[in-house]
Design a binder for these strands. Structure first.
Length: 432
RNA sequence: UCCGCGAUAGCUCAAUGGUAGAGCAUUCGGCUGUUAACCGAAGGGUUGUAGGUUCGAGCCCUACUCGCGGAGCCA
């Protein structure tokens, strides 16, 4: 591969004459000097075009550059504390690559609708770049964490014949002569099969929910990582969840500090994310709500507002476990101490960011699982293979799902998950 | 599906029921250290759509469309 120089490498090139390529981020001029701010995806560099230092043609060419014009620029690099990034280029030569006229996203405030309509261009801006880089670092931290801990990546199908949880609405399609098929809302059931084969697995990919949710926490297409482990009980599951979250947050703090600063995120809120996380039961959570004067009906699931109140009591993510079985999915194992409760856990992010993890110990008894399938009016036929996992050497096992976008949103301190993914899919938007 | 808010220049927003405005962007002119640069000028409008009230509607009324936020559901 031919060596190319990027703005992020400039420390190695001070005093040298080099060529860089990129786009014009912004420009200021004052008659005899022009300041071109070059961006190349790795950073920003102020390129100074002095009249007299360059030919008349080059100076005139620079005057024609608009926002997002692409070009090659050649000149000497020097340290310059006044400039963005601490370096500056004294321009000697310029070459136009692609013109740009009337770029819609100006250095000015814009509304969310306009920015989402121009999402393909919005991702070029500084904040969006920072968010996407943090998203990548989080995804890498997730993969690293599981790879280092003996997990095998296990890719489940995206087209499935069945619903994992009867409650959610699924995107439906006609699948040749086999009738209806659906886009997956979770790889978990397949993950369980993987855990019985490989011991510890994780799935990591897009999932789809056709619910008409219209809030800052919802996308119709989102990414989820779902570990599934044989011989793990609920406590083991919670241990793993808090270890993962701590690792993700600390990785971002170590490697993406400048991006966190661009977002003006309060870093102390992230620094406190250290094990152990508080673990409270559903009953404890209800007590907290009651003591706060919330009119909460025991037995209901926690709503968004309830989660905010509970998570507000702690400076790090809180794990709420042992929910009423009735509000949880059919595959969750009941608590032997109290069969009305499911061995489930939700991890609530701080600052009102809500549920980022939902997990449980799974029902491993084939007869109890059959009962649950009947109680939920699910068709047994599509679950035959899933029942086989309990028929041939069933073992206690657990897992959870972590929503990538909600995690990114929380770590970045964003208002809305739509900025956490390059092209968000929402109930009223599937473009660009 | 339900509740609330909104739609005016390319963008962000003003405009007591009485001549449609500003900043940014664009174009032109000025400026040798700018940091969302600055100064001057110009072009830019079927006020979301359809109807109604009125001498007169961007503004009041009705319906619709689209968007935003929330509820439910969930990661």
């Amino acid at each position: 591969m031919k060596k190319k120089i990027y703005i992020s490498d400039l420390a190695n090139y001070t005093g040298q004459e080099i060529s860089l390529q990129g786009w014009l981020y912004n420009k200021r001029s004052s008659g005899k000097v022009q300041f071109l701010i070059l961006r190349d995806g790795t950073g920003y560099l102020q390129c100074v075009v002095f009249k007299g230092n360059v030919s008349e043609e080059i100076f005139k060419l620079a005057e024609t550059f608009n926002q997002e014009t692409s070009f090659v620029v050649t000149g000497k690099i020097k340290s310059e504390p006044r400039a963005v990034g601490g370096y500056e280029m004294d321009v000697k030569d310029l070459k136009l690559i692609g013109t740009s006229f009337d770029y819609p996203i100006t250095p000015k405030e814009h509304g969310p609708e306009f920015l989402m309509d121009n999402r393909h261009l919005w991702i070029r801006s500084k904040r969006q770049l920072a968010i996407l880089k943090i998203r990548h670092r989080i995804a890498k931290a997730i993969r690293d964490f599981f790879d280092m801990n003996g997990f095998t990546l296990f890719d489940p199908p995206i087209i499935t014949p069945n619903a994992a949880e009867g409650t959610s609405t699924l995107f439906e399609m006609e699948y040749f002569d086999l009738g209806k098929a659906y886009l997956t809302q979770s790889g978990q059931l397949y993950g369980e099969a993987g855990a019985m084969a490989l011991g510890k697995i994780y799935t990591f990919g897009p999932t789809f929910r056709a619910e008409k949710s219209k809030t800052r926490r919802h996308l119709t297409e989102f990414w989820m990582v779902e570990p599934e482990m044989a011989f793990f009980d609920l406590d083991d599951d919670m241990d793993l969840a808090e270890e993962l979250i701590e690792y993700i947050v600390q990785s971002v703090l170590t490697d993406r500090k400048s991006e966190i600063e661009i977002l003006e995120r309060d870093i102390t809120k992230l620094q406190s994310v250290k094990r152990p996380f508080p673990r409270i039961s559903y009953d404890d959570a209800v007590d907290i709500l009651k003591s706060e004067g919330v009119d909460f009906q025991y037995g209901n699931d926690l709503g968004g507002g309830d989660e905010t109140i509970i998570s507000g009591k702690f400076d790090r993510p809180v794990m709420v476990h042992r929910y009423p079985a009735e509000v949880k999915a059919f595959y969750m194992k009941r608590d032997p101490q109290n069969p009305k409760l499911a061995l489930a856990v939700d991890v609530l992010a701080p600052e009102g960011y809500g549920e980022i993890i939902g997990g449980s110990q799974r029902e491993d008894d084939i007869n109890l699982l059959l009962e649950r399938i009947q109680e939920h009016n699910l068709p047994r036929s599509v679950f035959e293979w899933y029942l086989d996992l309990r028929k041939y050497g069933s073992v206690p096992h657990s897992g959870f799902g972590l929503g990538l976008e909600r995690t990114v949103s929380w770590i970045c301190g964003l208002e809305h998950v739509r900025e956490t993914i390059p092209f968000a899919r929402m109930i009223y938007r599937n473009t660009p």
